[in-house]
């Protein structure tokens, strides 16, 4: 279908944005890359009064490292994220996630801020930033807020953003960690039937601060507390992996969807748990 009739305004800066938002009130709908929003408008699922384009606000751009964090501006497009050297060095989980997101033409427009704000439960980036224990930096006329990623996603397509508030950046603490992302999708680029973004450290042969975050299996990214706890402080081996898989059952409450029942998503999550964690074992550890 054609998009509904609507207004359009473009903000040139954050101060400009606050005045545009004040002018349009609840009729305003922020648009960045638009790769999800504009598709939903074609379903006429929503009819925003005015789209407020933030893509030319310079404060929301850029990728930098300082004070122990990797800062990724909200307007960073998926394609930029995928080829950025700083991201590859400090958050290779994100680099690995990018090829799983849709297709090249979508990745050229879609932004990390947009992906996080839309909070699709099957999307890769929300799960990744929870796994990386990132902080979502928000901005509004009232000023900046810093929200831990694990608290940012509140429910299906819901976030901790207040009306009039936008995502400005994501900050990822610099740390030596192992990370990986795997998903099961019907076709390349499809939303996953189930996916896992995982990050952990191995110190002295023991797993430290494991964060197993599942996507496509709940109302948002699911940080599996019990499965992660089953690994904490243990050697990463067949027994601890099996323990994580066993503990996972209580962490997940997947919905039914077109691909299959909750039981299938649980099953796939267990399979991914094994595959991702086994991937962290180096050959000598496997032999041992």
């Amino acid at each position: 279908m054609k998009w509904p009739a609507m207004g359009y305004a473009r903000a040139a800066s954050l101060p400009d944005l606050w005045s545009v938002l004040a002018q349009h009130g609840s009729a305003a709908q922020i648009i960045a890359g638009g790769q999800t929003l504009l598709a939903t408008l074609a379903f006429r699922l929503s009819e925003p009064g005015t789209l407020v384009d933030i893509t030319r606000i310079p404060e929301l751009r850029g990728i930098s490292v300082s004070s122990g964090v990797l800062r990724i501006g909200a307007l960073t497009r998926h394609a930029e994220l995928g080829r950025d050297a700083l991201v590859a060095r400090h958050a290779p989980l994100l680099t690995a996630a990018v090829p799983l997101i849709a297709h090249p033409a979508i990745r050229n427009r879609g932004t990390i801020g947009g992906s996080l704000a839309y909070a699709d439960p099957a999307a890769e980036l929300p799960a990744c930033i929870v796994a990386l224990d990132a902080v979502v930096v928000t901005a509004s006329a009232a000023g900046e807020r810093r929200i831990p990623a694990r608290d940012f996603f509140t429910d299906l397509l819901q976030t901790a953003l207040n009306p009039g508030e936008i995502i400005a950046a994501v900050e990822i603490p610099l740390a030596e960690r192992r990370s990986a992302i795997q998903e099961v999708a019907r076709r390349s680029g499809d939303y996953a039937m189930a996916g896992l973004a995982a990050a952990l450290r191995i110190e002295g042969g023991r797993v430290v601060a494991p964060r197993l975050v599942y996507f496509g299996v709940g109302t948002g990214p699911v940080l599996a507390a019990r499965a992660s706890a089953a690994l904490e402080g243990r050697a990463l081996d067949a027994a601890s992996i099996a323990a994580a898989q066993a503990a996972l059952g209580e962490d997940l409450d997947p919905p039914q969807d077109l691909h299959g029942p909750p039981e299938m998503k649980r099953h796939l999550a267990r399979v991914l748990t094994g595959r991702v964690l086994n991937g962290f074992l180096n050959p000598s550890e496997i032999a041992a």
Partner: peptide, 8 residues
């Protein structure tokens, strides 16, 4: 179709 669900 022979979906993952049906095969599983």
């Amino acid at each position: 179709p022979f979906t993952p669900e049906r095969i599983l």
